[in-house]
Structure formats: C-alpha cells, structure tokens
Design a binder for these strands. Structure first.
Lengths: 337, 337
DNA sequence: CTGAAAGCGCTTACAG
DNA sequence: CTGAAAGCGCTTACAG
C-alpha cells in the first residue's frame, strides 16, 4: 500500500474513462500516427484529467528498451565529472533519451555495484566517467549494453569504447610554456599512478629532454610531501632550486600554492605553478592558475554519439582522443633574473 | 535487438537449467526462507554460471515497489548538494534501498521534468535537495510517493516534509562573532531572494539592532556590484567605511575576497569577511574563510528517516530544523585600531 | 482507424 | 518444500 490519496491511474483507467481500448490509449499517448486527431485529443484530455503518467517500468519491460542512459561517476565532488555529465545529458536529450546518474563515492567496489544496478535497471547504454573500473569489469557490462568510458585506462577494454584527452600534448604544452618564459629548473609534481598521470609525467620528461634539460627533469610525488620539499628548496635559495612546477592536476597545484602562501613564497614571483584540468578552483585561486583545459562537455557529447551508434548496431570498440588546450593565467611568469 | 553476445538470461532460463520451477528460482535468489539449503545453493550456482541478474523493471512492476529512492539536486556543480546526497545514500543503503540521482542543471523547468521522470520510474521516495521547486509541485509529487525537501522553502509544502538548517541562528552567530572582534561597521552582502538568504539577512538586521547598531545595518546586493562598492569604500578610507562583511554564502564571500585581492585590499587586515555554508572553496581560499557549517550528511540521513517512516504509513508532513555551527578561520579578525 | 490477445520478466498467493 | 496460475502496466503484431 502506498500512502497516496488515490491509486495511481493506469492505461486501463484512461481507456475505460474515454470509452476506448487499452491499446488505443497506448498509441495515443505515444503519439502514434494511426490514431485520428479527434480521438487522440479526447484521450489525452481524459488522461490529463485523471493525472495519468506512463509507468516507465512497464513500458521498459514491454518494449525491451528503457530510453535511459546511465552516467556513472567516480564521485560527486569533482566538477570535472559534473561537466562531462552535462555533455552527456544534453546529447541524450537531443536523442529523446533520459539520463540517470550514479556514482561510487570514489570507492571502486561501490562503483562496480552501482554499475550492476544500472544494468539491472535496463539502461540502454552507460557512460562511465571514471578510470577506477578494470577493463574486465567494463567489458562484462559492455556484453549487456553499450558502454563508453570517459577517462584514460591503463589497458584499454576490448568491447567498451574510450574517450580521453591527449595528456601528452597537454603536458608538453605546459612545459613548453614554462620553457618559453625562461624557466629551466622545472619540477613535476606527480599526482597518482593512474594512466593519465603517467602520461603527463612521461610527456614532461620527454619535453625536458628535448630541451636538453634531461638532468633537470625531476619528479616529486604529491602524496609524499612533494609540495613541502619544493617550497623548502625555494626558501633555501639553493643553487638548483626550482623556479617552476608543473603539477599533474589542479588540486595538487592548489595545494602547492597554499603551501607556498603559508611559507611566504610568492607565486609566481618566486615560483611559477601550472596545473592540469582547468577545474573550478583554478579560476577561484589567487593568483589564477595556469592549467590545461579538457573539453569536458564535448567529451560527454561524443560519448553519447558512440553509445547511439552502438545501440543501433553492433560495432567494434572505438577510442577517441580529444585535444586539450593550454590556459595561461597568472600563476606562471618569467623567473626572477 | 541489443548488440550483446547472447540474450540476457531470465529466471526462466535458470529454472530450466536447474530443473525447477520459475517460482522456486524467484524465491531462491531473493533468499526466501521456504527453500531448502541444498536447492537454493544449486539454483544460485546455476544462476551464477548463466550470468543471471534479476531484472529490476520486472521486479518493480510485479512488487509494486522498486526499493529505489530518487535524489533530485538543483545541479551538480555544488558540493553542498553532493554531501547531502552522500548522507541520503548511506542511510538508504542501511535500509537496503538503492539510490538514483537526477538534477536540473539549476533550471526550474528541467528540474520539474526530472522529478516527473523519477515518479515514472516508480521510486519509493524522493529527496529533493533544492529550493527551486514550488510547494505545489512538491505536493503533487508527494501525492504519489513520499517526498522530503532539503532546503528552505518560502511557503512550506503541505504534504512534503522539509529539512533545513536554522539560518537565523547561523547568521546571528556570524554577526556576534564580528561584534565580539570589535567590528561595528558590518555590512551584509545579500545573495538572492530565496528564503534562506532572506532569513540570514533578517537575522543580520536584528543582531545589529540588538547591538544598538541599527543605523549601521546596511545591505548590499551581491549581484548589483555590492562587492565592488564595499571594496571602493574601504579604499576611500571614508569615515563610515565597513570593516567587516557578512556575505550570504561562501560564493559571494569568495568573490568579495577576490575583488579585494585585485584592488589591493587586505583580508582580514583591512576587511574581515565571513560567509555561509562551509563549502569547499572556503577552505581552499587564502585566507581561509570564516563561515557557517550546515550538517549536510546528517540532513541527508534525516531525509531518509522521514522517507522511511512515510513509506510504511501515511503520516503528516514534518519540518525538521537542524543546528548550524560557526566555523572561525582566518578571514575575520579584529579591525585596525 | 480500432479492439482482443499474447507477452515482457518477475512476484505472490494458492494448492499440493 | 515445490509447482501452476494470475497479475503488475505496458507494447506490439494481428485481425477486422
């Protein structure tokens, strides 16, 4: 027993009230062509009056399709995920698909459970905005419904599609920007062991080597006190102290800026700092953060495009790599003479 | 035709493979008591081997309940909403309920449409974390399934429950904190016409009046250049220039801090700034923002408690008001002598 | 243009 | 402890 006033009206109630058959109501509410204009509007009027709403469960069960796409996010805290989700929703909307969102609160096991729930709900496709799920897990899901992952996997799944930005090019752009400003002692603040982080780090090392600065290519781990060490070196005014830092993401960059602030190290006067991801905090930070923008909404839209193609026909998994863009702001400047 | 390898197995396939009836499979997978241990484990083994997963659509349709609670957020950008959602999810999990999330991208019309979708999906209850929906809209939804709104409504709905923090007490705490620090020229930076903003503003005016500072109670609108005016006055060093600002939320406070930074006004030395909401940016900002914390996860959990009570039995709508807590950080200090 | 019938995958009394 | 049957609310050929 639901605690509602009156039982929820069904297609049956509408049919009886309108004096027609159930099938006709079904056709009318879905706007099928084979219903005369007069009958349709009469039926719709009755449906409206009764407060009839199509039951998505029954509809989905009968049709074998739900018109639902699931969006699975690592977690809800990151606005990066939110913007990809927006892209998905807009594109889905354009195709008459509805979107439901789930997330794993940054816990892989929970994430996998949520994925299972989306499958049980019979979504017509899933966009996984996360790099936390193993390729096997994605592939297993992809055996039941089209799946596209937005993010950079270590080993690409075989059946799920993948969309990610070109981390190497983004990282290279940052390093070249710093080099052009006259920096040579540029440190990389590494953020994780994930594939995207690794790609950025690798590109940093290559770009440094290409500039003949191989000996200077230094990598510190953000989670091992990297920020404190950098600030300490700057304060010590030692010969080899860094003048610039390329952090693997904006969060690490922000932490570094904070550490510098608390220690009295001026950014960018004493130390230039660049991040990656163009997240919201980068624009709120003072100085505003130089960073790399990933076309998030576009990635979401592309994901739906791939999904739609696979919903119609069986196709091979695809990988799409989109171009990032350097965003130069106030946290990077020429080093002191 | 879905593009999957093999058709998704149903209860029927499991029954045939295990040599039992469909009903027995149904009972076994749900862990019903009336199935012998031997049969159950045999059935489960077969189900597992076939990769059987219960179809949530069929289950929901047959049972009349989906075990699903919907969480409807104004939008995804705000981590405030995300944390309330976490509270909802944890509490729901404890009751064996699954959670699906939807949002309106800060657009009231879209939000209402999403609400309709959740209803169509047959969710067993809805937590609306938004103040963007009219009470009639909430009540209409509440006629079909339990609804609780987390946020402060202008006029309370009649059938939907409400949970919000005590804005008056939070705002009063901020003003009293500033007064205690020695400020008397405290300006309020108003953020919107919403009920919560109004309550905070009203409490500010009362607290100022109570301190005999009625003549000083000044309110500027954030969206009408309020921040610029305040900073301008501070710069002018005019007699009545404010020494402290209570902003209606952290976002407005952050903008004010930025405006001050860009104009060379030091916070808190030249101007103390306090916000409301204890959002993530408040802790990232330098100086760290003095603000008011709402117990977000708790609000989410309370919402589920109310929902659960209403799922079991028809009950009157309730309003729960939770206590906020002042968080003193670095953006407020005694005014210059 | 309209109606009767079967079926989507599950659950739930009801017999045995 | 187990099976046959009806039903949840819709859609979809199939006849007329």
């Amino acid at each position: 027993m639901t605690p509602s006033d009156r039982p929820v009206p069904t297609i049956h109630d509408v049919a009886r009230a309108a004096g027609v058959s159930k099938s006709l109501v079904s056709l009318a509410v879905r706007g099928d062509a084979g219903v005369s204009e007069a009958t349709r509007s009469r039926i719709l009027a009755v449906a409206d009056e009764l407060g009839y709403r199509s039951n998505a469960l029954a509809r989905g069960l009968a049709r074998g399709r739900t018109q639902l796409v699931g969006v699975l996010l690592s977690g809800l805290r990151n606005t990066y995920h939110a913007e990809v989700a927006r892209g998905v929703e807009e594109a889905a909307d354009g195709l008459g698909l509805d979107t439901i969102i789930a997330h794993g609160a940054y816990d892989a096991a929970l994430l996998e459970r949520r994925l299972g729930r989306l499958l049980e709900l019979g979504v017509d496709g899933i966009v996984v905005v996360s790099a936390m799920l193993a390729p096997e897990v994605l592939d297993r899901a992809a055996a039941r419904t089209p799946v596209v992952m937005v993010g950079r996997p270590f080993t690409p799944p075989e059946r799920a599609c993948v969309i990610h930005n070109h981390d190497e090019r983004g990282a290279t752009a940052v390093v070249e920007h710093l080099l052009a400003q006259g920096h040579s002692r540029i440190v990389h603040l590494a953020t994780s062991r994930r594939a995207a982080a690794r790609a950025r780090r690798g590109a940093y090392e290559e770009a440094m080597a290409a500039a003949g600065l191989a000996a200077e290519a230094r990598v510190l781990e953000a989670d091992e006190g990297g920020a404190e060490r950098i600030v300490g070196e700057v304060l010590s005014r030692a010969a080899g102290a860094p003048t610039a830092v390329f952090a693997g993401n904006d969060r690490a960059a922000a932490q570094l800026v904070d550490t510098a602030y608390d220690a009295g190290v001026a950014v960018p006067a004493d130390l230039s700092v660049a991040g990656y991801d163009n997240s919201e905090i980068g624009a709120l930070l003072r100085p505003r953060l130089t960073t790399v923008d990933q076309p998030r909404e576009r990635m979401g839209r592309e994901a739906v495009r791939l999904l739609a193609a696979r919903m119609e026909a069986r196709r091979d998994a695809e990988t799409i790599v989109v171009e990032p863009a350097l965003v130069v702001r106030d946290s990077t400047a020429a080093p002191r003479a």
